[in-house]
Design a protein around this nucleic acid. Structure first.
Lengths: 193, 193
DNA sequence: CACATTTCTTAACTTAAGTGAAGGGCCCGA
DNA sequence: TCGGGCCCTTCACTTAAGTTAAGAAATGTG
């Protein structure tokens, strides 16, 4: 599992053995069971997550309804809002499957950034990359219909459609679960004709 | 204008005179006329922008239609997708008003990051902050109706509604211009009743 | 100033999403 | 194994957004 992480990190910077050992000594690898809630609304947390295997999701509870806004799967990272803003979390994070991930808190990161400038470079590059990726996703979302968003999802993240309940996909696509059902039926109908 | 920038940066790190001078020596301050196009589709660019005064927007041209996806006003920054991905730009950036901004290219940033670790810390903190802010915006967008998004915009960025053409606001809100007109009429009607 | 262009609004119609309700399938626990 | 609950689907109905079109208002240009 360590190798999976280091392979990933090597896309950004090349780490020495010393640096790798420093990361390993933080004891950040964790295995969590399906259903585990990593973060709750109202909670203050300093933890960031990086998924090595499995899937986690972020969701709000609005008017008693779960609204899923993001899924993170293999090689994806989340730093919750509350970690940066230092305010209580507005959303939940839970495990969709048995998941292996790293958990690193912001104190660790500050310390590592101080000790190893390369680590800060890594964090900067990574968050810059996430920022532009997310911007592209947001732009795409704004300029597409729900149907187009669903078709795009089939192309870009086909695995999600298999591993995630329909109702959660629906709110991820910004629509009601019934609308997703109908939209899927509509697409099938078109395919036949 | 320099002071406006340094005041802003002081929210993240405190800079020495030497560091400030290093920034000033880069000659990054520019004044651009309304209508200037800073980046075109298909162009490769290394430039990032930080708006000191004025307003710029990013937009796509899809099926011959302009689709505005973001506005950047005072104290906001953009690093276009193409700078990070090193591919031709998929969108345009233009000036909505006479604008004063900083333009810094990625070579400059690499050099500054090498010379002043504090500068890299600044960039990391800033992009981490933007990332979570944008995540919150995206979540809000997904979980709101167009009407609610417009009402939120009145609260959060009332200036935009004044300084930006309606049709551009519409695509920023993810709807057709006619729908925004209708929606506004609907809200007014409710307000009366 | 006058003309051309673009933008905003309104309206009528079409299409799709929201909503409430009901039924079937599936899993889980009693 | 039976029953309860949850999820997905379907349907009918409501509401709102997309679309096409037309006219009024505003903007920019020569």
């Amino acid at each position: 599992m360590e190798d999976v992480l280091f392979d990933f990190l090597s896309k950004y910077v090349s780490l020495t053995e010393e640096e790798k050992n420093a990361i390993l000594s933080l004891d950040i690898f964790h295995s969590v069971k399906k259903g585990t809630i990593l973060l709750k609304e109202g909670q203050k947390s300093k933890d960031s997550y990086f998924v090595l295997k499995g899937c986690i999701r972020t969701y709000y509870i609005l008017e008693g309804e779960e609204k899923t806004t993001a899924f993170y799967t293999e090689m994806e990272a989340v730093t919750p809002h509350c970690v940066i803003s230092k305010t209580p979390s507005e959303y939940y994070i839970s495990c969709m499957e048995d998941t292996i991930l790293t958990i690193s808190d912001s104190d660790m990161e500050v310390e590592m950034n101080g000790k190893f400038p390369k680590f800060e470079t890594l964090c900067r590059m990574f968050s810059e990359e996430l920022l532009v990726k997310q911007q592209i996703d947001f732009d795409k979302f704004k300029t597409s219909s729900p149907e187009q968003r669903y078709l795009d999802l089939i192309q870009k993240r086909p695995d999600l459609i298999q591993r995630v309940p329909q109702r959660q996909l629906a709110s991820f696509l910004g629509i009601a679960p019934q609308s997703l059902s109908r939209l899927r039926a509509r697409i099938l109908e078109k395919g036949k004709a």
